[in-house]
Design a protein around this nucleic acid. Structure first.
Lengths: 227, 227
DNA sequence: ACCTGAACACCGTTCAAGT
DNA sequence: ACCTGAACACCGTTCAAGT
């Protein structure tokens, strides 16, 4: 409250902030948002924090652990404004809505999604997500086993879809025409690949959102009727 | 057959082979088999071929394209000895068998699976796999749309599972106890995560094979009854 | 035309040494 | 105890220059 609590620092740099785990993760999150996960490197973080890369290893174990922290940061957005809709929807709708929002979040950060596939996250917000999905499956009458095994499949599906189709330039592969299955499938001969030929039109029909919803519904229907 | 067809070469090196795309891919495949995909680097390939890394770019566009070629090489094993079993099984069994063998193949090369998630492969053997899966789904009475959208989900599920749980040391993450969800879930408080607590035992029940089969069955059941 | 040495622009992680 | 300079051991890709 009191004005000019401190004299203006003698240097132009706005007072080098003390290093801390939160500081490192926060900076990493900002860079991920603004430039994508590939720009979040130990060296980049270090140089932005005016230190050497070795210093970061005091606060994070390694890159994988840092990515885990970034996921949990991202998942914070999943649990704000949860109850905006008036009518308390059907468990199935709530579940598909939750999973879709989770997937949507990851779609913005496909590299993070790819990292998660090998990471096995375990932050509190991730556990919250798993617990909520489990609760909805059980509410829908799934057996404990079907719920437990099902939550894995559902979450993994969301992550994998984001890793595959996530939007953001990145352009790991040169975005020439070489890379689209559409062109390959289009030129695949009907005699070599008769079934592919038969469903050709449907292979690339629908929007990403439609297919995502469809696949969650398929998964759910299967899990419900599983032993 | 004839003895000593060639004089012993003057040098000890067994006559530097001429570079070719097949030579590069073949060497890459051998290194992947023996040491894992992480060891397959442009620099490693080049040094093994007694040249500089730049030379490889005459034969492969980039690393992603090389990985695509490695997948197609690997898939060759999927189509040998297809008809070993006597009885022509149910379409559902044949489909699950095919997908399981595909997944099993990838389980040995989790890094390749991770690469595929972003690659969109399109080699002839991959198209063969897709076409065969499509055929079986259609045989089972799936609509063209359900088959087309379903094949995507099925194949992606196999790839993602391999990327996640694939075996091979690799140890991207230090294999300390820190990394298992089991320990985290075990210590997750029942009051914070009640549903997780309720199904705790089932979360880690079953073998990888059982859960894989279960998930394919779940997916299939869902796809069958999809519009 | 085909090939490549050398450079460009980076990585993650460790460890001995400083304060 | 906490921190870090410098090193270790690498990457993929490009391009000017050679044959």
């Amino acid at each position: 409250m009191s004005p000019r609590r401190e004299p203006v620092s003698r240097r132009e740099r706005p007072a080098k902030p003390a290093l801390s785990r939160d500081g490192v993760v926060g900076l990493a999150f900002r860079i991920m948002r603004e430039e994508g996960l590939e720009r979040v490197t130990m060296r980049r973080l270090a140089s932005e924090l005016d230190t050497g890369p070795a210093s970061l290893y005091v606060y994070v174990r390694n890159t994988a652990e840092l990515h885990g922290a970034l996921l949990d940061e991202l998942l914070a957005e999943l649990f704000v404004e949860s109850e905006t809709l008036g009518a308390p929807a059907d468990w199935r709708d709530r579940l598909i809505d939750l999973l879709s929002r989770f997937a949507e979040l990851l779609f913005g950060y496909p590299s993070l999604a790819r990292s998660l596939l090998v990471l096995m996250p375990h932050g509190p917000r991730y556990l919250r997500l798993v617990d909520t999905v489990l609760g909805l499956l059980l509410e829908g009458g799934a057996s404990p086993r079907a719920a437990a095994w099902g939550v894995d499949v559902l979450v993994a599906h969301a992550v994998a879809t984001a890793a595959e189709h996530g939007t953001r330039d990145e352009s790991v592969t040169g975005a020439d025409e070489f890379d689209t299955l559409a062109t390959v499938a289009a030129s695949a001969s009907a005699s070599d690949y008769p079934h592919l030929d038969r469903v050709r039109d449907e292979l690339f029909s629908g929007t990403g959102g439609e297919r995502m919803r469809w696949s969650f519904e398929v998964l759910l229907r299967g899990i419900e009727s599983a032993p």
